[in-house]
């Protein structure tokens, strides 16, 4: 199938099973540059698996994923890794900051993985930390900051490379609603300002409300609500 016109990232008929557990059973997806799409659904419905497939972390059993006109299945693991390094950004629920690095080093990490010099990477990192209002934490280690601050650091890290797609898997899952909303605001503002697309996995409607449209996954099948209405 041909990806919907103008879409940056699109998936068609994705199937994925972990042993006997079917996680995806013919899921569809597409997103345009600058668009925020929420993937919703009850837990165990395959939301995270869809995100992992879209991001090229997990190869699907079958189906096609095209990013910017390129078919992901034809890329090597190294190419997909490079893609994730330079074109994608990631925010997870927890366990993503390297505990022994300081916050600014954590944010600079993706740039450094791409070969940017330490000094330059940390300067760029500090800029993003300012935007996310956590620049005063630069010398602290993740263990010394609160959950909301840590998550903002994680968002800064996801954005520091100027990604075209930002993948967020329950980014507010471990936060209270006030902190969660602040993180969502900062995340979507930042993404809009750079015209990045955001793939947002959440089961919370109020988080999904920060999206432009939602896709509901149930029993491994997706439903694009905009087209359904």
């Amino acid at each position: 199938m041909i990806a919907p016109a103008g879409s940056l990232l699109a998936a068609h008929d994705l199937r994925k099973a972990y042993g006997p557990t079917v996680a995806l059973d013919g899921a569809e997806f597409s997103i345009h540059p600058g668009e925020v799409v929420a993937i919703m659904g009850p837990s165990g419905s395959g939301k995270s698996t869809l995100l992992h497939c879209l991001a090229g972390i997990v190869p699907p059993d079958s189906g096609s994923i095209t990013y910017d006109g390129r078919e992901m299945a034809t890329m090597t693991d190294a190419q997909r890794s490079a893609l994730r390094r330079s074109e994608f950004g990631f925010v997870f629920q927890f366990g993503q900051l390297v505990p022994e690095l300081t916050c600014v080093e954590n944010v600079a990490l993706p740039l450094r993985l791409n070969g940017t010099s330490r000094k330059e990477a940390e300067r760029a990192a500090l800029g993003w930390m300012q935007r996310l209002e956590v620049d005063d934490l630069r010398g602290k280690r993740p263990g010394e900051v609160s959950g909301g601050q840590g998550q903002r650091v994680a968002v800064a890290r996801a954005l520091v490379t100027g990604p075209r797609v930002l993948f967020a898997d329950e980014p507010t899952g471990a936060l209270d609603s006030l902190n969660g909303e602040r993180v969502m605001e900062l995340l979507t503002d930042a993404a809009r300002s750079t015209n990045a697309a955001v793939v947002l996995v959440t089961h919370e409607a109020r988080v999904a409300a920060y999206s432009d449209r939602e896709i509901v996954v149930r029993d491994g099948r997706s439903r694009d609500m905009e087209r359904a209405v």
């Binding site: 972390i57 890794s81 390094r85 950004g89 990631f90 993503q96 390297v98 993706p110 993985l113």
Partner: peptide, 16 residues
Amino acid sequence: RKLLSSLVAFGTRRRT
């Protein structure tokens, strides 16, 4: 384990 997976997710080379 979790940390390693997330590092891989955002493109860290296994070599690194």
